[in-house]
Amino acid sequence: MTKFVLARLASALLIIFGVSCLVFMLMHLIPGDPIDVMLGETAHPTDKDALRKAMGLHLPLHIQLLHYLQRLLHLDLGTSIHSGRAVTTILLERFPATLELGAGAITIAMLVAFPLGIFAALRQHTVIDAGAMAFALTGVSIPNFWLGPLLIMGGALWLGWFPVSGRNGLLSLVLPALTLGTAMAAILSRMIRSAVLEVIHEDFIRTAQAKGLGATQTVFRHALRNALLPVLTLLGLQFGALLSGAVITETIFSWPGIGSLMIEAIQQRDYPIVQGTILWISLMYIGINLVTDVLYALADPRIRLRHPS
């Protein structure tokens, strides 16, 4: 197990290196100049050149990349071009919000998807099944930027149960987490439904049923355990989608997370923040996948054996 985790960690470093290089190159290749952001339009060209030199932005790109990687080794992410604040400070400020939103969305997705998927499978070809799948279809075809305002109008303006936006306690988490979690709940419930359906027809379930275990009990004991593997994979996979969805959700709900930070920084060409957030996101992504892989390996020993260590 330790070997397995170590191998994964080593490859994680490789991915982070790859992502950092890619982001760095792309960021510097797209049009737009951070010097203009900092000095505004009215600056003298001599002032601009001086600042460019001071920031090392006049150097060839590969040298800049080297410098960037060097600083990265010392865990120095630099300071924001726009606000002058340390990138690490900003990230640490923003990260809890994103984590909370992601956790909320996943919780809601699972709370909805498990019962829905299981019951739909148990009652295949009935109204419950049809209704559950209709929900799933609606869920995937409603874009975040529509669902968000819709939920605000319903839950905040008409019902008055939740605050419209902002991050202020558990109540304020409900609407953004719903917005972000709905699509995931939809995909997940379909996944669970088909996983349970597949398992339900397998021999051991029939055996269990023959032994006189009740249907519900059987499903919970056996079917769910088997259905967990594909669901875990999906969760790992969906995490990236969750984060990109979070960009829109965070913007709508003025949620102070990493997603909205990144999109603003990209638009303002705030290189250090963009690089910092993307690094952070890939770290999270890698972390989550490491955890799912370990869980996967724990649940299914064959995976571990197959993995060359």
Binding site: P149, A156, S165, S254
Partner: peptide
């Protein structure tokens, strides 16, 4: 509050 609709909804609420 970057989204104008949300800003208005917040004001209304």
């Amino acid at each position: 509050i970057p989204d104008p609709t949300v800003r208005v909804l917040k004001l209304l609420a």
